[in-house]
Design a protein around this nucleic acid. Structure first.
Lengths: 335, 335
DNA sequence: ATCGTTTCCGCAATCGATTATGGTAAAGTT
DNA sequence: AACTTTACCATAATCGATTGCGGAAACGAT
């Protein structure tokens, strides 16, 4: 059985104490240059790598484990965020991952587990039901480096990073209006979801700016932002009134797929009879026919950025991050 | 700052040694029933949770951290596997995740990092370039619980779990032949990829079983299994010969999307002029129009299963797992 | 020569758990 | 009564690193 070299091995080899070795390797003071060099040399030869468990235990804090918490790992947007986090290998951070399935209890439980493991910091994508800082209070009190990504949390004053959903939605509606659409419906997500709320605000703002009336019956709620819900909502839009919409904006691309399905069944042509704009620029937007116009939010960059910022926060406790990234409309063939 | 209760706190409260407390909590011998009860009671009151770092350090092995290694976290199939692994919360295992991007060096480096962290076991989805057990030799020598998922590794004798790609491909071709197709092309992946190789074997086996000739020029290689490569390969198939295929089987759904795109451009109707069958039952197969016939392999179940089996291996060193799960054809509208 | 400063390094405690070894008192044995 | 066994618990070492404190040697100043 292979055994890794320890501080003691280096110390024995040089006939010095482990204290000296530790200080030499961490480039601390009270060490002569000569000794420092010798220690580094032996460490290299023995292929020494510090035992991070021992270090974490002693320091009461890991220095290379980041905990990630998100609602659903198999949603394209989230999975590209994970890719952004895992693919940059700076500092060799290890990534722990926990999935909440939008369950607040589960979220709390994962946070506790991360705390027990002395993670160096946490990247949190809150559930869509988050209403308060209850779950992260422990983190705040203990000053655990934390960055809240994608969603907002009421009364939370700490570090965050997210896309500008308000602006994204506004761009989408601006675009539809510019294309001559007069009656634009909106399929939104859960009422308590901050992201969805921002997009609704963007929708309304754009309509107002162009002197359009806001018709509440054109706004349908799809709590799970699913394809099926969107299909049903679409059905409602076209059967409840004999003055149906000529454009639909959905807050996810999946919902747009539901609209496509309804349009296909109702023999509505996209974009001639009905323009569709989705949100996320997920992979299905390029596969749908006609290709879907959508608001692009780059998950990869978001994840990469979140990790970089968190590392800054870990290394410089006074560092703060309050960033809102721009989204940009990607015009394809559905509008 | 909140501080967790330790063995020592319990020991002090009861005026006994930490030895006694440890043994009582771990239900070992040399402890009176009376003492055991008292210890458990105090532990409950103080909300004691063992420090897993300290435990791992002492035992030279964690008991609740699983390391997962896979090629690309944002591919739908892989992300559903992650979901399968993370969503079952048995035993409160923590999940570490590493992405190789099909880079063997990176794979090795992640394995080393996991070893340094004394993970209890590893779920490995090898890169498509894997040719030998070089990367996992350390794991085997050190008897680290390991399960190889999705792909095979030459000369590897340990635990594995994967889908039956041979059978899946065979079913797909059987289906196309039964539908009356006479000239079935195949878009395959990288030559060194075992999964792709299995599917090619299935393709050939089915053709042979039905008395068809195998025409090598109908088999095109798309090393990255991308949509664009598939589009190009398709173009080649239809321009190189004036006797083009009437059906195409692709080893991923994304490649099928490439075929769709070519068909659209070349004004070929699916399925009338060209039948298409994909592989994976990814989310795009339900979004493509017409909906894609594909071979279903359930990533969620695979992940869940892999985790359950690994836990068995961790807890019972003599336990072995050699499973090949069936895939099943999902017939939709493209064939 | 004496005292004060640096410089450089080691001792031992510490993080929180596990465990080999040993010791004491009660119970059992002949 | 003397000896052995059993039950139960404590002491201390251990995992691999970090760090407060202290000590010895070298050097400079008076």
């Amino acid at each position: 059985m292979y055994k890794r070299a320890t501080l003691k091995d280096i110390a024995t080899a040089l006939n010095v104490s482990t204290t000296t070795v530790s200080r030499a390797l961490n480039n601390k003071s009270d060490i002569s240059d000569e000794m420092r060099k010798k220690v580094w040399e032996v460490a290299r030869i023995l292929n020494y790598k510090p035992n991070s468990l021992a270090r974490s235990l002693r320091q009461q804090s890991s220095d290379n484990v980041i905990g990630v918490i998100l609602p659903e790992v198999d949603h394209y947007f989230f999975s590209t965020i994970i890719k952004g986090i895992t693919s940059s290998i700076d500092k060799n951070f290890l990534i722990m991952i926990g999935e909440t399935n939008h369950d607040l209890e589960r979220e709390k439980s994962i946070i506790d587990q991360y705390l027990e493991h002395f993670v160096a910091g946490i990247i949190l994508l809150p559930t869509r039901h988050v209403q308060s800082i209850a779950n992260i209070k422990t983190l705040i009190d203990a000053s655990i480096p934390l960055i809240v990504v994608d969603r907002t949390i009421e009364d939370y004053e700490g570090n965050y990073l997210r896309h500008d959903s308000f602006l994204g939605a506004q761009q989408a509606i601006d675009h539809l209006i510019q294309k001559g659409r007069k009656k634009i419906a909106l399929l939104r997500g859960a009422l308590e979801c901050s992201v969805s709320a921002d997009r609704v605000r963007g929708y309304k703002a754009s309509l107002k700016n162009h002197g359009f009336e806001i018709e509440e019956h054109l706004i349908k709620v799809c709590p799970n932002t699913s394809k099926k819900e969107a299909f049903m909502a679409c059905n409602a839009l076209f059967t409840e009134s004999d003055n149906p919409p000529d454009a639909i904006f959905t807050v996810t691309d999946h919902m747009a797929a539901g609209v496509y399905e309804y349009a296909h069944k109702a023999e509505l042509r996209i974009p001639q009879d009905l323009a569709v704009v989705g949100y996320s620029n997920s992979e299905i937007s390029d596969v749908l026919s006609p290709k879907l116009t959508t608001v692009g939010q780059d998950g990869f960059e978001l994840g990469k950025n979140a990790k970089a910022q968190l590392i800054q926060i870990i290394e410089h406790p006074q560092f703060t991050c309050r960033q809102i990234l721009p989204s940009s409309l990607i015009v394809r063939d559905s509008s």
